[in-house]
Write a protein that binds this DNA or RNA. Structure first.
Lengths: 204, 204
DNA sequence: CCTACCGATCGGTAGG
DNA sequence: CCTACCGATCGGTAGG
């Protein structure tokens, strides 16, 4: 079994949402998805390379054929998830008209991503405290770039003068980032929650 | 050096905010405060008993004279911090008149607690993912009891009918809980942030 | 990708 | 409260 099996464009049917770039092997993509799920569920420190290996059907040490280190794996994951989220949100924003409608589109997409039942995505964006110092600054920089989308959305709102837009944006983002803490399926849908959020945040 | 030195009522000047019950030894209180700071800074898994011991001037194993386990230590800490916060918030709410004023008083007090520079308090309330399964349900139950204060505050608001009060309350609480992620001293004060929050959340 | 292992660190304990 | 240690687990590596 050699390792030259990279020229396989999207074999398994989950091309629906391409979280990771196309220029990685299917096997590595599989490993990244498994790792993302475990990190989201148990946190950075709570997920060992042996755990990831076990779910992938190999021993922990074997992962080092695909990754450089646990740090690098987490960083790659985090950046890929944020990149994919950013693309989806920008698409949704581009399809909407009006400042409040664009904000609601962004919120709805963000919540759909964070609240997806199989969410191999981003519920890891917050526990920066758990992550080694060496990669934390890179994670924060990437997150800041992501949040620029919301910065410009908020800047476009016709808000009352007494509102501090920086605080307003941070409050909004903290709601979106921690919705998975209290969300329960079967009640309001992500889009309905987005409508509630914009209903609350809408003042002019 | 014997161990019978418990009958000392508040020796060091920090009686200003009694986070922990009076019926524990000063030494144990000291250890709890050190542990709280480290947990808040580095998370549950990122804080070892050796770390706590080092800051307290003893070896990790020596802490077991005062605690039963790391789990129990964290649980005690968490419950004491929430209990103290609840008392302060209920006092502030009791001193205010009007549903919106009471809400703002609760938010301001909550933010003062979470954003205090030496905050040995609660920025640990969120990383339940990091904590062992055995104590997680107890932590959640205690937090739910704490949040009942906000439940009744929100129920008293004259909100428009289209607002879902459960979602509204969760959104509000997630903002208060994660304000420490973006707060920077020197800009808005906690009370000013509370005013911004209520300004946003105020609809009737 | 596996076997077998390394040094480090963890929570916790015994015995004083 | 210390010394000295236990078994478990971790990220990572060598050599195949």
């Amino acid at each position: 079994m050699n390792t030259s099996e990279k020229s396989n464009p999207e074999p398994h049917g989950a091309a629906s949402k391409a979280i990771f770039d196309g220029d990685i092997s299917p096997r590595k993509r599989e490993i990244l998805e498994i790792a993302a799920q475990l990190f989201a569920l148990k946190g950075y420190r709570g997920t060992s390379l042996r755990d990831i290996g076990a779910k992938a059907g190999v021993f922990g040490g074997s992962l080092y054929h695909h990754i450089k280190s646990k740090d690098a794996l987490f960083l790659e994951l985090h950046n890929a998830a944020l990149g994919a989220a950013q693309v989806r949100i920008e698409e949704a924003v581009g399809a909407a008209e009006g400042a409040w409608q664009r904000l609601e589109a962004a919120c709805a997409t963000m919540l759909e991503i964070q609240l997806a039942p199989d969410s191999l995505t981003m519920p890891l964006m917050n526990d920066f405290r758990e992550v080694p110092d060496e990669i934390r600054s890179a994670l924060i920089a990437r997150r800041d770039a992501f949040e620029d989308v919301f910065r410009s959305l908020v800047d476009d709102l016709p808000l009352p003068a007494e509102f501090d837009r920086s605080v307003y944006r941070n409050l909004l983002l903290s709601q979106l980032n921690s919705a998975s803490d209290w969300f329960r399926p079967g009640r309001l849908e992500p889009a309905e929650i987005a409508a509630q959020i914009v209903g609350i945040f809408r003042h002019e």
